[in-house]
Simulated assay, not measured.
Amino acid sequence: MDYQEDRFWDASSEDLKRGYTYEHETEQFTCLICGKAFQKGIIYKWTEDMLMEAEKAIKQHIKDEHGSVLEYLLTMNKKYTGLTEVQRTLLSCFKDGQSDKEIAKQLDVGSTSTIRTHRFKLKEKEKQAKVFLAIMDLLKKTDQQDDLVQIHKGATQVDERYAITTKEREKVLNTYFNKGVDGPLTKFPSKEKRKIIVLQQIIRRFDSDNKYTEMEVNEVLKPIIDDFVTVRRYLIEYGFLDRSKDCSEYWVKK
């Protein structure tokens, strides 16, 4: 499967704002939200009377399938955006062009001065983010120990369990997949950090563009381990898989 996590987190801030990356080696424009790719040089038939070149096609894809990049980013978990529910609502209102008076009425805060205070705090947050990004970019040039594995976007309760180095990951995978990562598990780990590493590898066997029935999920997991029901539960619990309320459909959480 074309796994999205590394691509998303390795993207520049400019790529994140656009919602897609361009890879010079493959000459592909790839959606950072779902992984759909468009090949440079190919003309895509969008509708019966509309043709598009690759970059225009991926922009239209994002608009048609995801609404907008801003809408998607605003729906991301607080642990990634750092936004409270109120701040997220305010930003959505700002996006829609609402006046402070309209927003104050919608949020039932009574005064536009409250909205102006929130605007000020968000501007301060923006300044802090710019400085922090500059610090981290400069640190990359000198920090030789920063080899932590990226956390998947659906992760729940992010804590020290996710502080996983590349070496740790390789050691755990070699231990629990002693016939190779495409083979079966020797056993399912009990320690939390090892459990996460193994689940990160297992989810790669699912196609992020597909919807699965419970039986289809089981069929993917059965060659990996006999107790596939427990692994399926952990994939959901740790935010790798999501499912409909009636459990009729499963999909990779993006």
Rank of each mutant, 00 (worst) to 15 (best):
H118K: 09
R233Q: 12
M50L: 15
V217Y: 06
Q4D: 05
P184D: 05
A104Y: 01
G154E: 12
A155Y: 12
F94C: 00
K125I: 00
Q98C: 00
E71M: 13
T81W: 10
Q145R: 11
D147S: 12
V131T: 11
E71L: 13
F188W: 02
S13G: 03
R119H: 15
R161S: 15
Q98K: 13
A37I: 10
R88Q: 13
V181I: 12
Q60D: 01
V86D: 15
Y44C: 12
L74I: 05
N77F: 02
I58Q: 00
I203M: 08
R161Y: 10
D6F: 07
D147F: 05
E25V: 12
I103R: 00
S190I: 04
D49E: 08
G239S: 10
Y212C: 06
Y250E: 07
E5M: 08
Q200Y: 01
K36N: 00
K40I: 00
V229G: 07
G82M: 04
V131W: 03
K171A: 09
K121F: 08
F120P: 04
G154K: 07
M76G: 02
D143T: 03
T186N: 15
G180R: 05
D6P: 04
V172G: 00
S99D: 11
D2E: 03
A163E: 14
K193Q: 15
Y250N: 07
K153D: 10
T117A: 12
